Simulated assay, not measured.
Amino acid sequence: MINFILLFIGIITLIFLIVNNILPYLFVFFSKDQDFKKKYGEWAIVTGGSSGIGKSIAHRLASQGISLILISKDENNLNEVINELNYKYYGNNNDNNKNNSNIKFLSINLDFTNSESVKDLINKLKEFELNKILKINDIRILFNNVGFLTMEGFNQTQYDNDKLKMIQCNTLTTTELTDYFYRIWVENKNKIKSKKNGVIIFTSSITGVLPTPFSVMYASCKSFLSIFATSLSLEARYNDIDILAVQPGKVCTNLFNKIPNLLVLKFLDLFQQKPDDVVNIMFRITGRYGIIIFNSGLFAVISNIALSIIGINITNYIAYFISNYILKDYSIYRDNNNNNNNNNKKNK
Rank of each mutant, 00 (worst) to 15 (best):
K196H: 02
N304C: 06
N340M: 07
K104A: 04
G290T: 11
K73L: 09
L68P: 08
P248G: 10
F256D: 09
V278S: 13
T174G: 12
N137A: 06
N344F: 01
Y159E: 07
Y25N: 10
N144D: 02
N324E: 12
D74E: 07
C221F: 04
E42L: 03
I302D: 01
G54Y: 10
M282A: 11
E84H: 01
I69Y: 13
F214A: 03
D329P: 05
S233E: 04
I314V: 12
F256H: 14
N99Q: 08
I167N: 08
I2E: 13
S233L: 02
F214S: 05
D95V: 13
G287P: 09
K55H: 05
S72K: 03
F36E: 11
K126R: 10
N79W: 03
T173H: 09
G48K: 04
A58R: 11
T212Y: 10
P213D: 05
V46P: 10
G147K: 00
D329T: 02
T113W: 01
K126F: 01
N254V: 09
N86K: 15
L225A: 08
N304S: 13
I227K: 12
E152P: 01
S31I: 04
L262Q: 14
M1V: 04
F148D: 06
V146K: 00
T315V: 09
V81K: 01
K348H: 04
D335E: 15
Q273P: 04
R334N: 10
N316G: 15
N99L: 02
S67G: 05
T315I: 13
I312Y: 15
K73F: 09
Q273S: 15
F30P: 03
L78S: 00
S296I: 01
L68M: 04
I293S: 12
P24G: 00
L125G: 07
V264S: 14
K258C: 05
T230F: 02
F294S: 11
K32V: 07
S117P: 00
I200E: 05
N338S: 08
S220T: 12
N100D: 06
P211Y: 11
Y159T: 02
I69L: 13
